[in-house]
Design a protein around this nucleic acid. Structure first.
Lengths: 223, 223
DNA sequence: TGACAAACCACACATTTGTGTGGTATATAT
DNA sequence: ATATATACCACACAAATGTGTGGTTTGTCA
């Protein structure tokens, strides 16, 4: 019950209908989730939909149907509405679409990131990411000084795009076999094997077994 | 005619009615600008206002008044509307509120930043800035390696909060007397004078006369 | 002086939009 | 067997909302 799957890095096909897409939000029927996803998308586009717009685009012929869904989603705490106000649909943080969760440490025992570790959210809206969804991206707070020569220092937010592979010289978030996650530069040897290299002369290269969680796409630092 | 005042760093009281607040947008009457500013704020809050909401909060007793303004602003290319659609007000990029302009170089001859140098926009929405408006913040693209030991490298976007003063050790955007802008750490001597210090041993401290444009609040780096 | 634009108001009207009531069908749980 | 939840539909109604016409006042420009 404690293990809410979240931000799992798998290569399996996404968005199977019987499985919740928005990880961390349980108890949604597939149909309810479809409605929620539509609203997410629309709210991201700056003008939330009217119930008739929802009905139209989702193929319902009755506004009452949409009302049922909205009521259900509201009861489940995923959105808030204001009475008699057009388009007044607000997503709760849990359901918010274009936000990147900022994660702290990594859950031991599996390559999943713990839902409980979310420290906050970043807006992906315009932020140089080109509309990546929550499914594709997450963020980590940087600890230590191993990447200091690449200008990445303690406290920075590293935005990671999830992908199982990366190229030579790209900076990646890698999962080591002790379930530790590090940010390092990926390097290829002459024998076409890969290893991880710190951007700090005081750290030796990591030649252990590792898997790539994703590559670094953005660094954000707040003063 | 070429000199559109933009992002002027002055200590003079802001929002004098006779002066345009949204620099770079000429030909607006003060009243029109007031309406635009209201819409900017509301659109930033995710749900654009209805014309009656505009009328109410701005103290107009007639919807026709608002329509006149909306028409004027639309003709001036500051917003777009969709017929018969509630709250369907879109701001054009020029008028967009919660975007920080990314500026390039500095216009020679005055401490104003040139409107023409805008390279893009950053969304301030949630981005760790806590709802700063365009009036308070701008961004610069970092050139050179003078701040490399502070983890700020070439190509980074430095988000600057405009303010005429800063504290010891804060990183500031400073305007030198040759109209050059640099990002440096502010330091105080024992005599309570201030100088600028690079975060790179190869650069000497700057003891020349300078003024502070603002302080660094965020660094963003895109890979 | 006349023309014109800005800056308002009042009010009627049509459309959009949210709400409410009442239904059907299908599961699943008790 | 009955209650309950999901997943829909139809339609009426009221409130919210956008649109349109026709004003007044003030200042500017020619």
């Amino acid at each position: 019950m404690k293990e809410k799957p979240f931000l799992t890095h798998s290569t399996a096909p996404k968005r199977r209908c019987s499985v919740s897409t928005l990880s961390g939000v349980e108890g949604l029927t597939p149909k309810q989730e479809r409605v929620l996803n539509f609203i997410r998308k629309k709210v991201g586009e700056r003008l939330p939909p009217t119930i008739r717009e929802i009905a139209g685009e989702l193929g319902f012929s009755s506004t009452g149907t949409v009302r049922d869904y909205l009521k259900a989603l509201e009861q489940k705490g995923l959105l808030k509405r204001t009475n008699n106000k057009s388009r007044a649909i607000e997503l709760s943080a849990r359901a918010s679409f274009n936000k990147i969760p900022v994660l702290g440490t990594i859950m031991a025992g599996s390559p999943n990131l713990a839902y409980e570790e979310i420290q906050g959210y970043i807006d992906t809206d315009d932020l140089f990411l080109g509309r990546l969804s929550q499914d594709d991206v997450f963020a980590l707070r940087v600890k230590g000084d191993s990447m200091i020569e690449a200008g990445i220092i303690e406290g920075d937010i590293a935005v990671i795009k999830k992908q199982p592979t990366a190229f030579h010289r790209e900076i990646v978030a890698a999962l080591l076999d002790n379930n530790e996650v590090t940010l390092k530069r990926l390097r290829r040897t002459r024998n076409n094997t890969f290893f991880l290299e710190a951007a700090n002369k005081n750290y030796p290269p990591i030649e252990k077994k590792f898997s790539i969680m994703g590559k670094l796409v953005t660094v954000i630092r707040k003063y």
